[in-house]
Amino acid sequence: MTVPDQFREDLLEAIPSLRAFGYSLCGNATRADDLVQETMVKAWANAASFQPGTNQRAWLFTILRNEFYSQMRKKKREVEDPEGHFEASLFEKGRQESHLELQDMKRALATLPDDQREAIILVGASGMSYEEAATICDVATGTMKSRVSRARSRLEELLGETSSELSQAAG
């Protein structure tokens, strides 16, 4: 089958948000771009299974997300990391220009359980609706809502703690 031009155009157009989603998920710019590359190759190979007119961005996000978790599982097996140090390294090397405040958020994000992290990124940052986010993560919309709610509470807790530590250190 020939990959339609429209598919290709939309894929190109989705790259910025795929990169942003990948970066928000894994906290590492290089890894994020590798995820995007893998996503593009997979999307191209599976172009036939995409129904034109449906939500291509959500479809691509789903591929990237699945790729992210499959790489994470593989990596965990390879480096024998039962304690999850791999995850703890998420966002450790934040981009230098980031403000301290964002560093706190990145660190807080990295400590969230995977399902809560992806939920709050999808709904809170990428602009996906609850329904779209639920489809991407293959759960019911209600489940997505409760994940976002828990992620939000957890982030508030974590950021509250960090802020007060910072003020105490400063004071």
Partner: peptide
């Protein structure tokens, strides 16, 4: 279940996200 993302958190998440989303495509 109150899933509304508060502004303080949403803003920071968006800044992390948009920083990359606004970059030109490599």
């Amino acid at each position: 279940i109150d899933p509304v993302v508060p502004e303080a958190i949403g803003k920071q998440l968006k800044r992390i996200y948009d920083k990359v989303a606004d970059e030109p495509v490599p």
